[in-house]
């Protein structure tokens, strides 16, 4: 049975449909990536899943708990990291963690012990007694995640965990997410970073205009689209005429000459290499390297959503 079951979830604000009848499952211990551009319905979906917003229709069941009917019971097993660090600015790191623990009913000794453990785990021990407002962006992010883990949740919702923070903190956060998965925590990751999702998510769903466009493992998503096959040849020449001849000789191919003495040859069908190499040899063109260009998850996203990846990348710096 799925750990999270989202069924026919819908959210409308007046005439605007933010989330349009979406359904998906998440298995226990899975890292589930939720990708989409601004206004795609990511935040509305998450807010309904965490009980911060009421669905217009549909259900969310997490670990057998109906979030709509028993939001407080469901929230007890959730850890939630918003896209902005929303801890208390005047409290220090340790106090923030202890306060968050108290909200989950943890007793003083227990919450202080757990707070110390998390500060150590997130390499924030030294900064534990500094006010939150004095933290760097990366440190704020890490403390916010630590606060979400204070009660050892069964599922962690992470909204853009690595956006706008330094490389080292991002790396630590990614490592932590993978470690949590190993410990059996389910992770729901909302992100703009396609590469990040590709690297750490077990399964991914693309959302656009309030609808799930595709979902599955990275490999499954790759299979969903038939991208051109492309071979990259590193040669010793820079000759437009040769590129034209090559294209003419292999029907259905498209040859693009790059500025670095290389050629990219695209075909719809699988390419047999020997005749191509023979053609190169016949024309006295040396080939130093030939490799297949595989489609990236970004290509899949662009193809399925019709949204240019440059738009998505531009949004990485900004909010959701």
């Amino acid at each position: 049975m799925a750990f999270v079951r989202v069924s026919n979830l819908k959210k409308t604000y007046g005439d605007v449909t933010a989330v349009d009848d979406i359904s998906f499952d998440i298995q226990k211990g899975e890292i589930f990536g939720f990708l989409g551009p601004n206004g795609a319905g990511k935040t509305s979906t998450v807010n309904m899943m965490i009980g911060l917003s009421r669905p217009t229709a549909g259900d969310v069941v997490i670990d057998g708990i109906d979030v709509r009917r028993k939001p407080k019971q469901a929230q007890a097993i959730m850890g939630i990291v918003a896209d902005e660090s929303n801890l208390y600015k005047d409290m220090d790191g340790f106090e923030n963690l202890c306060f968050c623990a108290a909200l989950y009913g943890m007793r003083k000794e227990e919450r202080e012990l757990r707070a110390r453990q998390l500060l150590e785990q997130f390499r924030l021990k030294e900064a534990g007694r500094r006010p939150f407002k004095a933290y760097s962006k990366g440190m704020r992010r890490k403390l916010t995640i630590a606060a979400a883990l204070i009660h050892s949740p069964r599922i962690l919702f992470l909204d853009e965990p690595t956006t706008g923070i330094d490389v080292e903190s991002s790396r630590q956060i990614r490592e932590m997410i993978v470690k949590l998965k190993e410990q059996g925590t389910t992770v729901f990751l909302t992100t703009h970073h396609i590469e990040e999702a590709e690297r750490i998510c077990d399964r991914i769903a693309f959302i656009a205009k309030g609808q799930i466009v595709a979902s599955g493992t990275v490999a499954e998503l790759m299979q969903r689209i038939s991208l051109d096959r492309a071979i990259h040849f590193v040669t010793g020449i820079q000759d437009d005429e040769f590129a034209f001849e090559l294209q003419k000789n292999f029907e259905g191919s498209q040859v693009e000459r790059k500025s670095d003495h290389s050629l990219v040859m695209r075909l719809q069908e699988r390419l047999e290499l020997f005749p191509v190499m023979e053609f190169f040899h016949h024309h006295g063109v040396a080939v130093y390297e030939a490799k297949e260009l595989r489609p990236s998850l970004e290509d899949v996203f662009v193809r399925l959503t019709g949204i240019e990846s440059s738009i998505l990348k531009k949004e990485k710096g900004g909010g959701k």
């Binding site: 007890a76 959730m78 902005e84 208390y88 989950y104």
Partner: peptide, 14 residues
């Protein structure tokens, strides 16, 4: 306005 109130709304208390 600084969204820290969300913590209280999302806590498992009535």
């Amino acid at each position: 306005s600084d969204r820290s109130f969300e913590r209280l709304l999302l806590a498992p208390i009535s």
